[in-house]
Design a protein around this nucleic acid. Structure first.
Lengths: 150, 150
DNA sequence: ATAGATGCAAAATGTTTGCAGTGGC
DNA sequence: GCCACTGCAAACATTTTGCATCTAT
């Protein structure tokens, strides 16, 4: 079995108190917490961690594949003119969103067990990856909305 | 054919200059724009619209089903401890996220045409709806992370 | 006429950054 | 000892709100 320390080191990150506690909370979380929530929880054991350390640490764990960001396409809300069903290709680097079709998407069904969670309004498929533009451009750091459209 | 004015009125919204222009830009947009982007574009024809009107208007159009918010699960980033593939049920009211399984999700395939958009890292299925808790509670206005977990 | 929409300015929220100091390796 | 990491405070970006004014119906 892997200790928290092992996980950190294997990811190439120094195993500090803060990180171990943040990781502990993350791994036992069942609710997809935000940075602020993790901060609150870690404070119980480590009353001095700062919120920005939590931000930095979660981002680092995400980048090294230890945890995963629940996708929330960008730093801002985006709108779609088309109400008809279609899927999205979203670039994880620049957040560009392109409409696409994923085969099998029309046949997705929600099992009865999910119905107990609430009422289903729609099922959305998101393809995450790196767009060609970002692949070509070594560093795609400019904000997506300042880049030339399409 | 529907004029912009018709669309507004059918949604129960007053057809103001601002709204018509915002709607025009939205309907011809191909890039899933943000509020700020729409604001920039509308400014060309209507140099006095304010950014907050754009925010309010887009939110109104969204609520009345004229356009759709590209889902970005919440106002803040959320993390997931589990790297194994699973789907998410997301409550559109309180933003609670629950793990679930959608049948057919494992068989989704990305057609070759999508490959030209970039490299695919993963396919994520999101079930959007209203969770039982929000259904039971008439007004679920509190921030999700201030509600009792699970 | 009036309910609803707008513009402005200010606040709230979530996240990032620069920097000096600390601590893991 | 070195370099990555931390805490603090301040900056930043996005979105929301209160209020007086305006306007579509």
């Amino acid at each position: 079995m892997d200790t928290l320390r092992d996980i950190c080191r294997r990811a190439g990150l120094k195993a500090t108190h803060q990180r171990l506690e943040i990781l502990r909370e993350m791994l036992q979380a069942k609710d997809h917490p935000s940075a602020e929530q993790i901060h609150q929880r870690v404070l119980r054991r480590l009353p001095t961690v700062s919120l920005d350390t939590v931000y930095r640490t979660l981002a680092a764990f995400d980048q090294h594949g230890v945890i995963a960001r629940v996708f929330s396409s960008a730093s801002c809300v985006r709108y779609d003119p088309a109400p008809e069903r279609h899927d999205h290709f979203v670039c994880v680097k620049c957040n560009r969103i392109m409409d696409c079709r994923v085969s099998g998407a029309g046949r997705l069904r929600v099992p009865a067990t999910v119905r107990t969670m609430g009422t289903v309004e729609r099922i959305q498929v998101e393809v995450r990856g790196v767009c060609i533009r970002c692949l070509n451009r070594a560093r795609g750091r400019r904000r997506w909305w300042k880049q030339t459209p399409e």
